[in-house]
Structure formats: C-alpha cells, structure tokens
C-alpha cells in the first residue's frame, strides 16, 4: 500500500518578485522524520507553508493526507497538521494563560460554535504534562521564557492531535540547554505519537541526529537529500553555506557538544 502522506510535485511559490521555491518535488512517507537544512532564504519555511496550505502555489501540485491544501480551503487539512514556529514576542500583558493557548490547538477540530468540553481540557492537561509544563499551566503566556514558550507551542500542536508535525526553526534564539531539551522533546513526541515530522533549521547544531532523512535546500531548490550521516559531509556543507570546511567543522563540533 502506498503510504505517502505528503506529495509535492514541482511546486513553484513566489512572493512578489522573489521566487521562493523553484519547482520542488518531495514525497514523505508516514512516520518519517525529515530534516530540512539550508541557509536563510533557501525556501525552507515556504516548503512548510505549502504543506499546511498557507502558501500559494504558482505552479505544481501538492497532496497532503490525500487532500489538496490551498489558502482559503485548507482548513480541513490544517486541522490535521501541527505547526510550531520560531519563538515569538508575546505581549507580557496578554490576558491568556498557558492552558488557554494550548486549548487553541483543539479549536480547529472542535469546529465553529462548539465549546471546549471536559474531554478537551483533559487532553490539554495531558499534553502539558507530556511537555513538562503542568506547573506553569495557569501562568500568563507572556511571562514565559523562550524555551518554555516552545514547549507550550509543541503542547498546542499535540492538543490538535495532528498526523503531521511541522517545526520551523523551533530552537532559533534558544540557549544550548533549552535547545537540546526541545530537540529531545520533538523526538519523543515524534516516536510516541507516531507522527510524520518535517523539521526545518538553518542551524546544524539544531538538527536532530535521529532524522531518517535530510534535505539540503538552497536558492529554492532541493540541492541534495539522503541519510544524515552520508549527506552532512564537509564538502556538502561548505558548498551549501558557501563557507570553508574548517569553519563548518567548527560548527559541527559545536553541534556534537549539544547532542553528546
């Protein structure tokens, strides 16, 4: 049986005069953990927006979970796709608690008019437990640190009970400890919930080594793909980032420190 959940066929996406994706094709199978690496502006984030139906295709075809996501009519797909973005600035006075924010994850599935019931709050408390945020559940959302915020974002995705898990630089601007904690959590979530995960990063030290497959992206194209051990060679990386190998090597050592 064909177990492809994401099927992107020669997708072209452009923002004003810039072309963000120049004909990218990708198939992802159920349960795969795919890392997407590349410099800023390579089209990594755009790739994720194509999957959750927020990005508009100029050309090509996308099928996610058997549906065609598109702006305006992507709601049914989006409910089944969890999306974690970078740490965001949240107004410290925002009148929402951590629990309220995680509950937003349930809203899409609940549908219009329906109110969250007892079961929904149980799901919320359960995922807060999983990400280790139970003690802070009643905190105003704006009072959290970056690492805590990302835990909440992951909890919100899980409350959504998604089938696909998209992470867009979830560890950008976090310190090393918070970064490695989040990476561990992502892996745990991927394994225990049997999700299909796409993990985007420009930072090699933030790439979970447990990826099944890595895509290297540059200038709107998939430049290389394969298992992480083969693909992340000095030669590939220095060409990807246009940087001498010695510097890349230094970065990789930094990466090894994080994962050790």
């Amino acid at each position: 049986m064909d177990n492809t959940v994401i099927d992107i066929d020669s997708a072209v996406v452009s923002y004003r005069e810039d072309i963000a994706l120049r004909g990218v094709s990708l198939k992802v199978r159920t349960g795969e953990f795919v890392g997407i690496v590349g410099p800023n502006g390579a089209g990594k984030t755009t790739m994720l927006t194509v999957v959750n139906g927020m990005g508009k295709l100029l050309h090509g075809r996308v099928s996610v979970l058997g549906h065609c996501p598109a702006p305006g009519r992507g709601c049914c797909v989006r409910k089944r796709v969890g999306y974690v973005a970078q740490v965001q600035n949240i107004d410290p006075r925002m009148p929402m608690s951590v629990r309220d924010v995680v509950m937003i994850g349930r809203y899409g599935r609940l549908g219009l008019v329906h109110r969250p019931g007892k079961h929904d709050w149980e799901v919320v408390d359960e995922v807060l437990e999983l990400v280790g945020m139970t003690a802070l559940a009643q905190r105003p959302i704006g009072h959290l640190s970056g690492g805590e915020q990302q835990r909440v974002a992951i909890a919100r995705c899980l409350a959504q009970e998604p089938e696909i898990f998209l992470l867009d630089e979830p560890t950008a601007s976090l310190d090393w400890k918070a970064k490695s904690d989040i990476l561990e959590l992502v892996r745990l979530v991927h394994d225990t919930r049997r999700l299909t995960t796409l993990f985007v990063t420009h930072d090699l030290s933030a790439l979970p080594l447990a990826c099944d497959r890595v895509l290297l992206m540059k200038e709107g194209l998939i430049w290389a793909e394969g298992p992480p051990t083969e693909l992340l060679s000095d030669d590939n990386l220095s060409r990807l980032y246009d940087m001498p190998v010695s510097l890349v090597e230094k970065r990789r050592r930094e990466g090894a420190l994080v994962h050790s």
Binding site: N52, M54, C75, C76, V77, R78, K79, V81, Y83, A85, Q88, M94, M96, D100, V101, I104, G105, Y107, G108, R109, L110, L112, V113, R115, P116, R156, Q160
Partner: peptide
Amino acid sequence: AVFYKEVQATIFNRDMALSVGIP
C-alpha cells in the same frame, strides 16, 4: 459569545489561528 474561541484565537495570533484550522 457564540464565536468566542475563534475571536480569542484570532486576537491572540492570527497565523497560529489559521494554522490550527480556524477561519
């Protein structure tokens, strides 16, 4: 009152609201 959860999510973060499937 009727669309409280949609209003709340949209006010909090429009992109996040969109990404969980709220109009």
